[in-house]
Design a protein around this nucleic acid. Structure first.
Length: 283
DNA sequence: CCACGGCCTGATTC
DNA sequence: AGAATCAGGCCGT
């Protein structure tokens, strides 16, 4: 099946930008899960070729649109950020990088596991959880695993998670899963809360501090004003905007919201990628 | 409110 | 080779 893309879109950059951790690349084709359906994607020019377990296949196009936020007017958002020198550079270098609207539960677990870790390890852990406890789905020769929900993760136990090499994060994932399983709450409900209320709710969960909460809010709960500050973004902001001065997380976050405005989250994603890939010139 | 040290693991550096 | 160090933080003191 084919789908025409009317928005700036770099599929590979988007899927390997550290927002999601379970997509796999084979040549120019990517496969992974969207709303528990297995999908393979290949983008050439402005045509997205896709195959999916979803039936009818055509229904997948709405899910793809939502997942990759193709319903955001990215050129307009970029225009609202382009006045800043660093962002202008970053957007020029990688204007097809998009935020992803992913499932909040998997996103939450991913970023609890991200603390003091790295992308390849997070991927390994998330894949081992899915393969060990999620339902298998196939699409031709492709195999995928759905990410197990709170009830299933709540039954694994801290020891089980340590066997999966989560380290000290095992306790956090175990406790968070048990809380969500007990609440029987769909995290999507947090979308209806204002940013600070939703953030406070998330931060009450074990293993969820300001940074993890901001990632979940930005990548899965439509809070585009959220500005997650990891070590890379911190270095970039302190160096580029504060002359090397060190500031607390909340001060930087408040500054970013004031400075970049309602789409600070996109600004963060561009700055993060710009800084990590080193595609920035001095001064 | 802020600063600091400890924490699992695994890859890389010293 | 084996010991430090670091990696997209959080939590308790």
């Amino acid at each position: 099946m084919f789908m025409k893309i009317e928005q700036p879109f770099d599929l590979s950059a988007t899927l390997s930008s550290g927002q999601v951790f379970r997509w796999k690349r084979e040549g120019e084709t990517w496969h992974g899960l969207i709303s528990n359906n297995l999908v393979s994607l290949e983008l050439s020019g402005n045509v997205l070729k896709y195959k999916t377990t979803m039936n009818p296949s055509k229904k997948m196009e709405d899910l793809i649109t939502k997942y990759f936020r193709l319903d955001d007017n990215l050129p307009g958002i970029q225009a609202s950020l382009d006045w800043d020198f660093r962002l202008s550079q970053a957007i020029g270098a990688l204007g097809g990088l998009r935020l992803i609207r992913q499932d909040p539960w998997e996103c939450l677990i991913s970023f609890i596991c991200s603390s003091n870790s790295n992308i390849s390890r997070i991927s390994r852990i998330m894949n081992s959880i899915a393969q060990g406890f999620g339902d298998k789905i196939t699409l031709g020769s492709l195999v995928g695993f759905q990410f197990p929900g709170p009830n299933i993760l709540a039954s694994i136990g801290e020891v089980g998670f340590r066997e999966l090499k989560l380290g000290y994060r095992a306790e956090y994932v175990d406790k968070t899963a048990k809380i969500l399983a007990d609440n029987q709450m769909d995290l999507n409900e947090l979308k209806s809360l204002p940013y600070f209320k939703a953030k406070a709710w998330l931060m009450a969960l074990p293993g969820v501090g300001a940074k993890v909460a901001d990632c979940v809010l930005l990548f899965s709960l439509d809070k585009l004003e959220s500005f997650p500050i990891d070590v890379w973004v911190r270095r970039a902001i302190e160096e580029w905007y504060f002359n090397g001065e060190q500031l607390s997380y909340e001060k930087l976050a408040q500054w970013a919201a004031d400075y970049f405005g309602p789409y600070a989250g996109y600004a963060q994603q561009y700055l993060f990628h710009h800084r990590r890939t080193g595609e920035f010139s001095g001064s």
